[in-house]
Design a protein around this nucleic acid. Structure first.
Lengths: 204, 204
DNA sequence: TGCGTAGAGTGAACACTGTTCACATGGCGC
DNA sequence: GCGCCATGTGAACAGTGTTCACTCTACGCA
């Protein structure tokens, strides 16, 4: 059985890590459709069978490659904390979300647009990386409620509504259905007005 | 070159149609991942090479199979016209959209969650089946504006906002990220409240 | 009536893919 | 020094999409 946890020796961690970066490179080059375990092995100078010493199969390999997307995502989100007040931080959170999605479309697709069982399989409904970043949004919402800029309500449910709204805009954009809006800047403007309308309805 | 337009003889239309239904069956059984051109050919009693007399390749075959999803989608949407007044028709449109997505997840994924170039490739931004049904939503929005239940504004942009909101809720649900909400009925309730909040912000 | 042609369908082949198997090898602990 | 175990290998298997040269059959036309 392949080792899925932490590394034991330097050599093992070495080739495993090299497999992950090669897999990530290949994934970012052509997406999931043209992803090939054998090609990854080729780039690392390993036989195809050798990959199975480190990963349970193709799916596990691409999953490991995409896990790095979560780190990138977090690095975007955390910048929202620089904003001066609760409402600005909430809006900045959405802005960073949009920036991440448009700047890293393949990562975004994998994290938010594929069947979730593939990622955090078997766990409860509130586990896995997406939900850990979701808590970040809940905190921003609660902050706004405490500051009376949003009406008091179930912060988690309000956060879900905001998430769904932003995700809807962003994922339609990534799928090309909002291409009529123009370039990314025009989309950003549309996005801003849309979120504003939603927050208005949420009782500000 | 394979014939992509209308049928010429009965026999040709026959096997082409049989290929499409077999492809659709297979697609609905296992999704795009386990879809195989050879398996479709097998079910129809055709050699794999024979498929290329009717379709340009695997992608064209699954695209043709999924085109039927648009018909199903339209049959859902049109029921919204039974509602008595403009606002009810707008809300019913969203409801039917949600019902279609949850009842036909694979069709929904193909139509709204895959890269749009794969579907209406080469055409302008405002063509293809998704936009023809989008006009249905625009009409419902305009209807509401005429009846003063929504503030007058660019109906297309307001429709985009509503579409994105509903799509966000539905696609997060399909990806499993909203499973914490409970069963489909609980999700429907959440969905209703969410859309209500959005429309409130849109100036009702 | 016979002929030619165009389209439908075929099997074989090619170049891939993911996965498994028996086997080599090299470094580490006892 | 010996044995063990993780690491790695090549070969093989079953399957894939796609192409190619080849049949066969039905139809239009002289």
């Amino acid at each position: 059985m392949a080792r899925t946890g932490k590394t034991t020796t330097d050599r093992e961690g070495d080739t495993r890590a090299r497999l992950v970066v090669a897999a990530r490179d290949l994934f970012l080059e052509g997406g999931a459709a043209s992803f090939s375990l054998r090609e990854v092995a080729r780039r690392v100078g390993l036989s195809a069978a050798g990959v199975y010493r480190h990963f349970d199969g193709k799916e596990a390999l691409v999953a490991a490659a995409c896990m790095q997307g979560f780190t990138v995502f977090s690095s975007y989100l955390v910048r929202a904390l620089d904003a001066p007040d609760p409402l600005a931080r909430l809006l900045a959170t959405g802005d960073q979300y949009r920036r991440f999605a448009l700047g890293n479309p393949l990562d975004y697709r994998f994290i938010f647009m594929s069947a979730a069982e593939d990622i955090h399989k078997g766990d409860g409904p509130a586990t896995g990386p997406p939900s850990s970043t979701f808590r970040f949004l809940v905190d921003r919402v609660r902050e706004c409620m405490d500051a009376r800029v949003l009406v008091k309500a179930d912060a988690e449910k309000v956060a879900l509504v905001i998430w769904a709204h932003v995700h809807g805009l962003v994922s339609l954009r990534l799928s090309g259905h909002l291409s009529a809006l123009g370039d990314d800047e025009a989309f950003a403007a549309f996005y801003g007005g849309s979120v504003e309308g939603l927050l208005r309805g949420l009782g500000r």
